[in-house]
Design a protein around this nucleic acid. Structure first.
Lengths: 214, 214
DNA sequence: TAGATTGTTAATCGATTAACAATC
DNA sequence: TAGATTGTTAATCGATTAACAATC
């Protein structure tokens, strides 16, 4: 890894996509890939790929290209897949079930430890094999287990309250699906505000545009 | 609306966020907002806001600012909220339930007409009040109803097949949650490839970075 | 070695910001 | 009118791409 020259957000946002393509190549037992080949697959320029990777150091070999296994593991490392991050979900609704059931966590080395809900009736049940606890037990749980990430799948109205609940628990990141934009940087907590609807709207815009052209 | 000078992708991707903030102001019965006020709320520059809006024409008034109701409706119009787009979902799983149950569609003027699944056992049931049909009936359904958008919530392995099924149905856009990146531009179909896991990874990266700094 | 492809710098391109004249 | 704020152009900044020397 290179010195601590800040890596631009644009590059960081592209890393997961590299990760996905490299995992696919790795699974297909492909040993090497050149920036040109990868560029063709991904629909980007070879220049950008080399430039991006070089933010983190030289992963390739002149005249040869990149060793898929090595590169895949490097990108994994950069993205923290190796770090065994642990997560909890707050809000045991439909979105919680969808996220907990799919391979999102396991594919990225994140362990889902528990689910919390403010409805006492849900406590004691399980979602995708993970226990649901009353929200009141969150602090106690975090005291006994290191929790890095909280996923907010509560309604918008409960977003603020959920944010307050995780303060002082050691949680360092929030994956926020509530549609209420949160900024917890003053508490040293990173937030990813997810707005599923936004992409639906840009899709609608694109459809509209294409019709106008025709 | 201005001439047909192409609006940049960066601007288009910001529109839904403007839409959300303006809806909030509108609901709070706030009549006017200046670019400076909106900029403070959203954490962007006033210059960017004025620049963005002016891609579509002059929505403001010098010395006054922007009329919230007017601007909100203009942005809605640009994003096609008025157009009464209709959608169907392919894949009646957990993610389908989460998306269909929430207000994502209704908040954006999109009507969810039907859900399709390849499991015949699911046919006849309903999800969030919407009927589930066998996938074989997709073409027939689209013949009888104008469908603009297909949402793919099938497993990755069924993505390609789903893409083929919508060809010739009149569907113009795909909101693709399958994790298999699709490009249907040769068929004149717009695609939004959604990768929920990607944002989880950038969150992990950010957490890691912050720890390294400290 | 010769051929291929990276790493890296320089050039280009586009997006963001600053500035201010226009004008409500 | 005077004050405020837009619309719009010009300046800046950063990101992408091109080019090529380094080197495997």
């Amino acid at each position: 890894m290179k010195g601590q020259t800040e890596v631009s957000e644009a590059v960081v946002n592209r890393l997961p996509r590299y990760y996905r393509y490299l995992r696919e190549l790795y699974r297909k037992d492909i040993l090497r890939v050149s920036s040109g080949e990868l560029a063709d697959m991904m629909g980007v320029t070879a220049s950008q790929i080399r430039h991006d990777f070089n933010c983190f150091g030289g992963f390739g070999q002149q005249g040869y290209g990149y060793n898929v296994k090595f590169l895949y593991h490097k990108i994994s490392e950069i993205l923290g897949v190796q770090d065994n991050f642990s997560a909890i979900i707050i809000g045991a609704g439909n979105l919680c079930r969808a996220i907990a059931t799919g391979p999102i966590f396991t594919h990225r080395g994140v362990r889902l430890l528990a689910i919390f809900d403010n409805n006492p009736a849900k406590a004691g049940s399980t979602v995708a094999g993970v226990s649901v606890y009353p929200i009141e037990q969150l602090h106690e749980f975090c005291g006994k287990n290191r929790v890095d990430i909280a996923v907010f799948t509560v309604p918008k109205a409960a977003a603020r309250e959920s944010a307050e609940r995780i303060l002082g628990t050691g949680i360092r990141g929030v994956w926020n699906y509530t549609n209420m934009e949160l900024d917890l940087s003053t508490h040293g907590i990173a937030v990813q505000n997810i707005h599923l609807g936004d992409t639906l709207m840009t899709l609608c815009y694109t459809i509209k545009e294409r019709s106008n052209e025709a």
